[in-house]
């Protein structure tokens, strides 16, 4: 069983929500896991992971807008080594988190009908990695 897969992505400039459901599902399928847990993790500090609706692209726009309202890009961040967008991205990433645990059954992710797994990019363009680790249920 291939237990760890790295998905590599090139993100667009600025903020974006990228649907990575198919890549993660493919990693689970290629691992041969039938029943167990899939942990998805991004090893970054200005990009996170969320699950939300993929039915209407406007939902992603709303999520991005609300995160920007909560954490506006401003000039009085304490972290000034990089850019204001980077500093805001660190805070937004804390809100979204950087890992998710998903149930796998019958070799598939047990997502709701409209649920999609999304990488939240807060300071693109960047080269990002998504680590997918599978763990089988005890025999």
């Amino acid at each position: 069983m291939k237990r760890l897969t790295t998905v590599r992505l090139e993100t667009p400039p600025g903020e974006s929500l990228l649907n990575i459901t198919d890549q993660v599902q493919a990693a689970v399928r290629d691992s041969g896991l039938a029943e167990g847990i899939c942990v998805v993790f991004v090893p970054h500090t200005t990009a996170g992971l969320i699950i939300n609706s993929g039915s209407d692209p406007a939902t992603a726009d709303d999520i991005r807008s609300e995160l920007r309202r909560l954490v506006p890009t401003r000039v009085d961040f304490h972290h000034t080594y990089d850019t204001p967008a980077d500093a805001a991205g660190h805070v937004k990433t804390t809100l979204t988190g950087t890992s998710l645990s998903l149930i796998v059954s019958g070799g598939k992710l047990m997502l709701g009908r409209s649920q999609r797994l999304m990488l939240a990019e807060f300071d693109g363009p960047r080269q990002r990695q998504v680590l997918v680790r599978v763990m089988a249920d005890p025999a």
Partner: peptide, 10 residues
């Protein structure tokens, strides 16, 4: 240039 957003991170 970077802080102003004239250049993105890349």
């Amino acid at each position: 240039g970077e802080v102003r957003g004239h250049l993105d991170w890349a």
